[in-house]
Nucleic acid binder design. Structure first.
Lengths: 192, 192
DNA sequence: CATTCACACTAGCGCTTGCTTGGTTACGAT
DNA sequence: ATCGTAACCAAGCAAGCGCTAGTGTGAATG
């Protein structure tokens, strides 16, 4: 039992775990399934991670960190208007959710499976991501682009986006970018 | 093993199961936990249900049926305008989700845990509920109250509503009715 | 008064789970 | 040539899992 925290091998294994967690859910994924998919035996798994819980923790950290990074990049590259910024956020969110199809989904859907210690360790990262969303939404509200309470709008928008995981078909013709555009159009369709 | 399908006792047990499934999730809920909460021994459980899967099936059927019934009642009682009907649906949805706090939540969040046979048995009921939503949304679109693609809008709206389970605080000051109103206001806020 | 029935109990089987142990291999640095 | 270390394996343990078998009730039914 000789857990290393930042080996490149560990990153690799984390990616595999993320995929399985999305496919089966955390509880139904056994360490034997994880090991098999990783091409090692189940005992070897505990050389890289202290326990199963730590694998979940690593996946969620990866997923949230990734979403935060990509969101910031998107904001840096887009036009500096409230609408463009809102669109950039929604698009980035959907792409990490639907295209990667792994770590970010786990971060959203398996959060409850974290124990108290892991939750405490990750909550700051999650808060940072949500704060970014809220600032973008606050700007859009101030500019009169959309309406409502800052927190409520954030939660409704994120809810609509997060739920796409349940019905989105990657083989379908709609791209994440298109979905983001449609959602914003729905909220900003002002009278004629 | 003498499973009865429509006993009143079974209804009672189903209610208890729903609460536990919401609290812990289906996978983490053991038959021993269920039995204890029901005030019987784990072996006795299988007099009422063939297996654990059948308990989930009963809960989800109950939750969806209930949501459908209440939605229809709400529609029958409200004004016959697209906006009032939309509001009635959203309110009914949130109330079965946040006030009951059990069977309907399980229906939404544990659907994936159903085996093929159960899913096939329940899919028609679920389709009926979603069809009702889509007809109300189609009317609102036709009346120009909201904008977008019928299916996309349905999914975004239901996503926003379903996600409330994750953050709603029943001890807070906002009622389901208020949430429903705010969501619709967000989508129908036409410019000045 | 005998039988049936719904409902509950005790006891435990067969299996899977997360995790541990003690030891082996591959390989770059010394 | 030797050593250190990261990576892996075979084997298995203790606990917990869903579920079954067989039995005991007290109330309703004939």
């Amino acid at each position: 039992m000789n857990v290393v925290n930042d080996s490149p091998r560990r990153k690799e294994l984390t990616r595999v775990a993320a995929q399985l967690f999305v496919q089966e859910g955390f509880d139904r994924t056994t360490v034997r399934m994880l090991a098999q998919e990783m091409g090692i035996k189940s005992g070897s798994l505990f050389h890289h991670f202290r326990d199963k819980q730590e694998i979940l923790c690593a996946v969620i950290e990866e997923g949230t960190q990734n979403a935060l990074t990509i969101a910031k990049e998107s904001l840096a590259q887009c036009e500096n208007t409230p609408e463009a910024r809102l669109h950039a956020m929604a698009r980035a969110h959907l792409e990490t959710l639907l295209t990667d199809r792994n770590a970010h989904v786990v971060a959203l859907y398996e959060w409850r499976r974290l124990d108290e210690a892991s939750r405490e360790h990750l909550i700051h990262l999650r808060d940072a991501y949500e704060a970014l969303w809220q600032s973008v939404i606050a700007d859009a509200l101030e500019a009169g682009l959309i309406r409502g309470d800052k927190f409520l709008v954030s939660r409704f928008v994120l809810g609509a986006l997060n739920w796409t995981v349940r019905w989105y078909d990657p083989a379908g013709q709609r791209s994440p970018e298109e979905l983001a555009r449609e959602l914003i159009a729905m909220m900003t369709a002002h009278g004629h």
